[in-house]
Design a protein around this nucleic acid. Structure first.
Lengths: 348, 348
DNA sequence: TTGAAAGCGGTACCAT
DNA sequence: ATGGTACCGCTTTCAA
């Protein structure tokens, strides 16, 4: 079963019009070295028989398949699916398409994905590092081989290229400040794995707020989920640990949709009142956090824009012959949406 | 910038080993007409230099790119992103990849997508119809041209091929029965557009339950969202309409994640108590509906399995020379998760 | 068992 | 301005 069994080729047109393939080829691509009359003729015919150049033949020639490989944590994740949406819309217009692979926060899968994508001869890579990734050698290899890469969300500085990220430091800073202003001082943070850029950035913003407000930093308030909160037990353990710490935290900032929703569910199960006993601020891209109980204060990331910007930068990279003079690090603003879960602390 | 600048080709191997390209080609594909000794030699060399056949060249030859086109409503949608996840995992293993396009519930985009995918020479199509789609001529055309299609979720009987769907009738039946058992009799239904298979099916289950319980069917309790609840106003209008109907509905069954979450948010804004004033049962694939306020009774669809099954059937279709004797309609069970939002009605 | 050569559908160089 | 031709990397007769 082939796709376009009735597809028409250059040769067909040439034969029908008594021209050479070469001429026809140039005519359809509007070359200056072809007379207007001929162009007319050819393009008319082409349109009438709706000629479409055979992609694979073109690919074979110029090793450019108009496709982009994407490595993403997981498709069913609000943040990533919005990112994908942005990438899809950017690539759709420029006639590229994305080939999606999921790392599922596993380094092994990430490496397999790189391999798979390079076999598929993608023109470039959009990647967000998995929670397990420490070394980026596997990316270095393909990058040095000439495949442009743009990192988004979880990025690395070890490879010189464009990066697109949310303002994670700013987001955490705003969230932490907000909690402090509302009277919370023992603020915990459940975050992703240590190595990730987002983790470090968020921690930075968090610490900055504490410092500015003269609140001591307590390392036992920081809990890392090495698998990005992939499973509930990981989150549950973090929360149990936090509940043991003396003095017990009076607020938690959670670092991803998964962790946020998981944490809320667990606290609810444990009958811990939010914000009565513990206030919450969560990174989340869920569409309607006001239907949560309680309504959740969120730090939202411009996921769609991140995806879109990353794709656009990558396409620019792919289509420019020479690497740019300097690489961009695009930092997109986050937003703090204040709701019930971080309401001001009651004075005793 | 090309992808595998250092990629090794058959010719390279041939030269290095003093063989012909033809021989090498056959050897790497383990042809019977090549001696074991030569195979050894060739494959050793190939492995050492990690030879990978050039996909585009292969594609050019046999018009089979090991790629599958997907048409989906929207990526950032719990249901669809789970479906995608299932498709991705099925195709990943078999070395296919999916090219995703979003219809965004628009017929125009759906048609463009078909065109785009057929230009990309996909080997087959996985499609869920948009909310606007009435005629399926555009699919008929490509299908008759020999591209296998498997429909999932929103299907059509006008094209003879495999279908994979959730047990929508069963889901609505269970949900409706549950509400009736809990004392609700004026049950409204906010659903997708009229033409969709899922709409008809769900209505069937709903009506069946009413009939069995001797409750008259009231057409003004049924509200259609012609854009699948793409925007809030559409849902808000439906709800406002319902609130006018006399007697006012005492329960609502909502037909998709979007509609469900939108409806909850709107009712909440209107300060209508759930289930006190109106009970709710919603189709939803949200991961933690227990953190909603109130905890939401849901009908969940096996989204991942739908995607997986559809992809598997399609690959089977692609790889079999002849069309199968008969086509399958795979119906996967839904689940009813009873929670707070549909709690038993208080007796007055 | 091995290999020469044609061809898949384009593109690009070089003549004409 | 137009056309002949080689080639991209692989597969597939058909001969040797």
């Amino acid at each position: 079963m082939k796709l376009n069994p009735d597809a028409i080729t250059l040769k067909d047109i040439a034969k029908a019009l008594n021209l050479s393939v070469a001429t026809v080829s140039k005519a359809v691509r509007d070359s200056h070295e072809i007379s207007d009359a001929t162009k007319q003729l050819v393009n008319d015919y082409a349109r009438r028989h709706n000629y479409r150049p055979n992609l694979m033949a073109q690919m074979l020639r110029h090793k450019n398949g108009r496709s982009i490989g994407v490595i993403i944590g997981a498709i069913p994740n609000n943040f990533f699916s919005e990112v994908l949406n942005g990438m899809e819309s950017a690539t759709y217009q420029r006639d590229y398409h994305i080939i999606i692979t999921q790392s599922l926060e596993s380094l092994a899968r990430e490496m397999k994905n790189v391999e798979h994508l390079s076999w598929r001869a993608v023109d470039g890579l959009l990647v967000s590092l998995s929670a397990e990734t420490k070394s980026v050698e596997h990316f270095k290899k393909v990058h040095e081989a000439g495949i442009p890469i743009v990192f988004y969300d979880r990025v690395t500085d070890e490879i010189k290229t464009h990066q697109v990220v949310a303002d994670n430091a700013g987001g955490s800073y705003a969230g932490t400040m907000h909690l402090i202003k509302n009277g919370y001082t023992r603020i915990a943070h459940i975050t992703s794995s240590r190595e990730l850029s987002i983790t470090t950035e968020r921690l930075k913003g968090y610490e900055k707020a504490l410092r500015e407000q003269g609140i001591p930093f307590n390392p036992s308030y920081i809990k890392y989920c090495n698998h990005g909160g992939k499973d509930l037990p990981e989150i549950e353990e973090a929360i149990n640990d936090l509940l043991q710490v003396k003095p017990r935290p009076d607020a938690i900032i959670t670092a991803s949709d998964r962790i946020t929703i998981g944490a809320m569910a667990i606290l609810k199960k444990k009958k811990i009142r939010i914000p009565g006993q513990i206030a919450m601020v969560g990174y989340s891209n869920f569409s309607a956090p006001e239907i949560f109980e309680p309504e959740l204060t969120t730090i939202t990331q411009p996921a769609y824009e991140i995806g879109r910007a990353a794709a656009e930068l990558l396409i620019k990279l792919i289509e420019s012959k020479r690497p740019p003079a300097k690489f961009e690090k695009k930092i997109l603003p986050t937003e703090l949406h204040i709701r019930e879960s971080s309401q001001g602390k009651k004075k005793k």
